[in-house]
Amino acid sequence: MAIIESAVPSHPVGPLLRHMGRNRAITLCCLFLIVLVLLAIFAPVVAGDPLKIDPAHRLSSPEAGAIWGRDHLGRDVFARAVYGTRVSLLVGFSVAILTTVFGVAIGVYAGLSRIGGAIVMRLTDAMMAIPAILLAIAFASILNAGLLTVIIAIAIPEIPRMVRLVRSVVLGVRSQPHVTAAISIGTSGLALIWRHILPGTMGPVLVQATYACASAIIASAVLSFLGVGISPEVPSWGGMMADARSTFRVQPVLMLYPGVLLSLLVLAVNILGDRLSDTLDPRKSRRTSL
């Protein structure tokens, strides 16, 4: 309800920063992500060698050299977890970016072109009928093994979701009066899309991208757990969990470390996406307080 038609001058970035300052959930998630990113970048500084096998200390408890203990080959679990962050983040962010770029481009096209839209929608329907992880496994086994393969294999099933979302948002934005107004003053083509249609889709796209990022992190863990894609010696959380499975009765914490890290990371990314989408909407930014 409009209490008053007030006219307050404001600075677009100010509220965002203030909002983030106020919002403990966002701050916590950001901090957690920053810590993980720093760990991933400075892994060699923070942790020891994740590949060094030390059969003498197999499954040993935490000690000075390996604060989270050692796994069934005597490798440093902490070092492997830190290096595993690299894979998770790289896959997560790359998939999010790929999904956004392709999903938005195709989605906008589908939203603006009647016939093209119909064709694209049937294709996405077909792709979405197959479980994403199956599709990813199929792609991963067709292509050569490696990080890039994993990224592509996970991104492809994610794109149709983004396309669908973007298309439906574009259909809504297109009929808004300000877009009609822009057409009536002669704005057309890319300028119309860039200035008037795309900005309106950014909120939902951002949320979807974070979900894509989160599900890509999980998917990459699943692929590693199943032994598809990245080679087993490259440290990854999924691989660590697969390794820990055999020794679960003896040393259950080995499963716990990568598992908890994975859950926290996915949770942080998801919360961030939810909250950011509220904050970035200029109309909501003044009202939301969470």
Partner: peptide
Amino acid sequence: EIAGSVPRL
């Protein structure tokens, strides 16, 4: 016309 707009409360 009534000039201006509704004041801020």
